[in-house]
Amino acid sequence: MRISKEVFGVKGSKKLGLTVQLRRAAAIAQKDLRIYYNKPPVIVQGIIFPVILFFTFTIGRKIPTPLLISGLMAMVIFLTATSIGPFVFPWETMRKTFERLITCPVSVKTILFGSMLSSFLFGVIFSLVPLVLGIIFFSLQITINFLIILIAMFLAAFVFSSFSLILSAPPTDMPGNIMIFTLLLKFTILFLSPLFMPIRDHPLAWISPLTYFVDIVNVSLGLESAFGHYGILIDFAILSFFGVFFLFLAFMLHKKTLQKRFRN
């Protein structure tokens, strides 16, 4: 049955199309950034962990500058882009603001996309910090291909914000529970990644999506790719694949768990 234009507005379908939903997703992202940027779990996971881990990995070791920058960027973008999402969903389920969003005229995809957008922006903004630091302190020693690095950053932020959506799928209303679970998973991935070391030296590096980002940054800082002559193309292809796969998986999981958020 078609719905009455009289009641639901003549401009109906056009007014509520894709651009409108995108705009609403942006509103959700803006809210996330405004509210959650200073929440302790976000700060701990997004800022303090990368700093601590950086020193744990690097102190007392002699590491070539490009590997230092690529490792730090990868770690920061990974940890920051996955810090907001898994906190926001259980938090908002607990505070019942998630129910508020669902009753608004936005689709579930819009909500997910909004959340992803905030993770994306968070990741991009914070991974610029090591890049800028790198440029300031090491710019005389190396040549940098900025364009490739920026594209790779956007792509990586996309991959990890999709990943953060997966982490936020369990329908719990206790942020603490999910934080422990995500931390375990995140550390595992970090240890599987060839951070601050040549990629070839790490036997399991190919599993982690971080590897491919590190490789791209290494190449744009003047090193050779670990995956042969066309290595950088392989990197982009595999990263894109990870992104699409994570996104697909995240949407599927959220669809499954959504209704379970409203049991109490």
């Binding site: 639901f8 608004c104 005229p105």
Partner: peptide
């Protein structure tokens, strides 16, 4: 039509 209907609630 979730979006259209929710718009008037």
């Amino acid at each position: 039509h979730p979006i259209e209907v929710k718009q008037i609630l």
